[in-house]
C-alpha cells in the first residue's frame, strides 16, 4: 500500500515526462481534482487525530503526534507538487507566447489549436490577461519591437520562400503578393513575424 500524495506525484511525473515535447501536454484535471480531494480528506483526519490526542493517554501521545506529522507532511507535499506542476506549465506557456512574438496584441487566437485544447480554463484566462499586459507595455516602446526573433541580424534583407499563401502584405516599399512557392528578397523587419508564424521560410 502506498503512501499519500501519489496522484500529486503523477502530476510532477507527467510534467517531467513531457518537458521535452514541442507542445504542452493536456491539463490533468482529473488528477488535480483527486489531489485536492485527498488533501481535504487529509485535513479532516488531521483534525480528528489532533482531537484524539487531547484526550489520549500519555503513552499514546507520541504515536498520535507521529501520525499527525505524517498527515501534515503529506499535505505539504501535495501542495508543493500542485504548485510545481502549475508553475511548470505557466513557464512553458510563457515561452511559447514569446516564441510566437510576445503575443503581439494576439490573444488565444494566435496559439496553435492543439495547444489551446490542452489548456485549463484558468490557463486560458492567464494568457488573455498576460498578453493584455504585454501589449500595454509594448505600447510604450513603439520604435522597438520587443517581440522580434532573438536571432542577431546579419543583413537588412533576407531571402524567403512562401510556404503558405499570405495574400497581399504591406512592406516599407509598398505591397507584395506572397503566393505559395514563390521566392522573395525582402526587408528582414517586414517578414520576421511571418517566418516565426510558419508562413515563410528563411533561406540562405
Amino acid at each position: 500500500m502506498s503512501i499519500y500524495s501519489d496522484d500529486a506525484l503523477k502530476l510532477v511525473k507527467d510534467a517531467k515526462r513531457t518537458a521535452e515535447t514541442p507542445s504542452l501536454s493536456p491539463y490533468r484535471d482529473d488528477l488535480v481534482r483527486n489531489v485536492l480531494l485527498e488533501m481535504r480528506h487529509l485535513e479532516a483526519s488531521l483534525r480528528d487525530i489532533l482531537a484524539q490526542r487531547e484526550k489520549a493517554l500519555p503513552e499514546q501521545v507520541t504515536g498520535l503526534t507521529a501520525a499527525a506529522t505524517m498527515h501534515h507532511l503529506a499535505l505539504r507535499r501535495s501542495k508543493r507538487c500542485l504548485l510545481a506542476y502549475t508553475r511548470h506549465r505557466v513557464d512553458r506557456i510563457l515561452d511559447t507566447l514569446w516564441e510566437l512574438g510576445g503575443g503581439s496584441g494576439s490573444s488565444n487566437a494566435a496559439l496553435p489549436a492543439d495547444l489551446r485544447r490542452n489548456l485549463s480554463s484558468s490557463e486560458a484566462d492567464f494568457i488573455t490577461g498576460y498578453t493584455g499586459l504585454v501589449s500595454e507595455y509594448r505600447g510604450q516602446f513603439l520604435e522597438v519591437d520587443l517581440g522580434a526573433a532573438l536571432v542577431p541580424p546579419r543583413d537588412l534583407f533576407v531571402e524567403v520562400r512562401v510556404l503558405k499563401d499570405c495574400g497581399e502584405v504591406m512592406t516599407e516599399n509598398g505591397a507584395v503578393r506572397l503566393v505559395k512557392n514563390s521566392q522573395h528578397y525582402l526587408r528582414r523587419t517586414d517578414v520576421e513575424p511571418f517566418i516565426t508564424a510558419g508562413y515563410l521560410k528563411h533561406i540562405e
Binding site: 514541442p22 507542445s23 511559447t96 516564441e99 510566437l100 496559439l111 496553435p112 492543439d114 495547444l115 526573433a149 536571432v151 542577431p152 546579419r154 533576407v158 510556404l163 528582414r188 520576421e192 517566418i195 516565426t196 508564424a197 510558419g198 521560410k201 528563411h202 533561406i203 540562405e204
Partner: peptide
C-alpha cells in the same frame, strides 16, 4: 550558418 536564420516557432513546426 544556420544560427543566423530565423526559425519557425517550435510549437508550429509539428503542425506544418
Amino acid at each position: 550558418r544556420k544560427a543566423v536564420r530565423i526559425h519557425t516557432a517550435e510549437v508550429l513546426r509539428r503542425e506544418r
